[in-house]
């Protein structure tokens, strides 16, 4: 990202953000509510395009491709998957939830879909748990299972990047642990960017952390370094709980 700026109408929500997100690492965005971290995350798969009055300037590259240039948005979203705060499985079977994306992209052969469903559930460490419940409604799963299913659904498109917007804030500690384990394992295959309000979570799982405040990226660097020796006073005050 180079000189990324975003406005919602007159409101300047992101201000001159330069950031390079490393491949196959976990990058966490932290900061108080309304600081722009989720807005910034949504720029990566052009989710903000859907927001009326939203204007974006700057360059957003995925590899060498400028994603706000002549890019097929569907193709972009295939490469950049997303998981939200609240688990949002579709009201259909486990199998159909996972197969939904591939079907949209034109995959209809049953054998291939079977393969994708199994691969995605295995990647999300859920295959053993769900292989006998593939035809059951996804809405019958627990909150934690639903969220991992949503991760599996995102993985079905074999994305290069997985965006996670507070994926564990609605979950209990055990389910949170499972999602964190999953992130840890997935980073070998996928670049993960996670927005979290939980600073302990950022220190536990991320390699790099960006601290946002009032639409600015205050500090960005190695997670251990940032949490042990923050360079900016504002970062120190936030992570030590002096404000926020």
């Amino acid at each position: 990202m180079e000189k990324a700026n975003l406005w919602y109408g007159d409101f300047h929500a992101l201000k001159n953000i330069d950031m390079e997100i490393p491949e196959n690492k976990i990058t966490a965005f932290i900061g108080p509510s309304g600081c722009g971290k989720s807005t910034f995350l949504k720029c990566f798969n052009r989710m903000n395009d859907l927001v009326e009055g939203c204007r974006i300037e700057g360059r957003f590259y995925l590899g060498d491709v400028d994603i706000y240039g002549k890019t097929d948005v569907n193709e972009l979203r295939r490469n950049v998957g997303m998981v939200f705060q609240k688990p949002n499985p579709f009201p259909m079977s486990v199998y159909d939830n996972i197969a939904y994306g591939p079907r949209t992209f034109g995959v209809h052969k049953r054998a291939l879909l079977d393969e994708i469903v199994e691969r995605s559930l295995r990647q999300a460490a859920m295959w053993d748990e769900l292989k006998d419940r593939l035809t059951k409604s996804a809405l019958g799963l627990s909150g934690g299972q639903q969220q991992r299913l949503c991760i599996a659904r995102a993985l079905a498109a074999q994305p290069k990047i997985l965006l996670m917007d507070e994926p564990t804030s609605a979950l209990d500690p055990i389910s949170t642990g499972k999602i964190e384990d999953l992130c840890y394992e997935l980073k070998n295959e996928v670049t993960i960017v996670i927005v979290t309000h939980n600073m302990q979570q950022a220190t536990r799982i991320s390699d790099k952390t960006g601290f946002f405040l009032l639409g600015e990226l205050v500090e960005y660097g190695d997670t251990v370094e940032m949490f042990s020796d923050p360079k900016k006073e504002k970062t120190k005050n936030y992570i030590t709980g002096r404000f926020g």
Partner: peptide, 9 residues
């Protein structure tokens, strides 16, 4: 040790 204290709590 310090890294563990920070990251693993």
């Amino acid at each position: 040790c310090m890294r563990i204290l920070l990251r693993r709590q």
